[in-house]
Design a protein around this nucleic acid. Structure first.
Lengths: 173, 173
DNA sequence: CCTTGTTCCTTGAACTTTCAATTAGTAAGG
DNA sequence: CCTTACTAATTGAAAGTTCAAGGAACAAGG
């Protein structure tokens, strides 16, 4: 939550550790609210319509766009910005649901391929329109084209700055 | 994850359920990446420096800003945009850590007050500068003042649109 | 080959969040 | 009072995530 507002009483301008301006605080607070509410909203929408959380759905989408609807585990984790551990658990569940299956990687015997099944693809096709509509209603239908552009630009900047960082994200450094 | 890109092969312009434009897709993808990476980043930063996840930290901040550093549970949940259930669990843990304590509400015996302890306040004071610095480095130092303004505006729009909605968020509707 | 170091992925335990009750207190009508 | 309806907050179990550890395969050098 707007963790920035926390300026512990000391309004001494001398030892100021560079707090946020009014404008920045407001933006940060709004960002926190928006992300929290949006994530919840989409999670519910997908839980209802596709019986899975948003992250899992995103994995299926990524697979559906990959060359032969298959991807190496690590690559999938990278693109989805999640840890490999999390992906392992997630794929395990998606496998149970029948949307994904695994296969050994021919070229590297350590490797695993996550593959979107036909059932998974069908399910995606059915739930995609509803999901797009939800995103549209919550975000893009409320923004001007100009704002969409600005928003994208800001998010790209933030994401880029964070890329080469992280703890268990060992594919980086 | 960029769940939108999922356009199941049908490029038939006739039954188009209103997909996203290129620009929108790009923005959405960037948003997903940014939020995921940022949340992870801040979670780690706070786990390291304050030994608690970002959401919990936010709760303490909210309390620190409240009138007598105390707030009704429901009000806190509302402002933090989380469910009351989640808050119950969270406060339970924060209590164990000694940062928060509870007190009965004088006016409504059903009610509980969550109160930031002195220990909690001290801890906040110590970790706030580091946290602000992290947010600054990840977000605001990378944006122009103009972008901060735009970003805030967009987030406010999204958050506002999502406010009167939700399932177990019974304080709404 | 054998050793050493690294990469790919999985696993189990600890912790957090969600979901569906459940308890206790308030409020209004009769 | 008593009933009914609603609100505040908690609880326990299930689902999801993180963290630290571990096994198996590759890669380079001796």
């Amino acid at each position: 939550m707007d963790a920035m507002t926390n300026r512990p009483a000391s309004d001494d301008p001398a030892e100021d550790p560079h707090w946020l301006t009014e404008e920045e605080q407001a933006a940060w607070r709004a960002y926190m609210h928006a992300t929290r509410l949006l994530e919840d909203h989409l999670d519910r929408q997908l839980q209802r319509d596709a019986e899975m959380p948003h992250v899992y759905y995103g994995l299926l989408v990524q697979l559906s766009e990959a060359p032969r609807r298959r991807m190496r585990m690590t690559e999938l984790a990278q693109q989805a910005k999640i840890t490999r551990s999390r992906l392992s658990h997630a794929v395990a569940r998606l496998e149970k649901n029948g949307w994904v299956r695994r296969e050994e990687c021919p070229s590297d015997k350590r490797g695993q391929l996550a593959i979107l099944t036909d059932a998974g693809y069908t399910m995606l096709s059915r739930s995609a329109p509803g999901h797009v509509a939800a995103v549209r209603a919550a975000v893009f239908d409320r923004l001007t084209p100009e704002q969409v552009k600005q928003f994208g630009e800001v998010c790209r900047t933030i994401a880029t700055g964070l890329e080469p960082e992280g703890a268990d994200l060992p594919w980086l450094r």
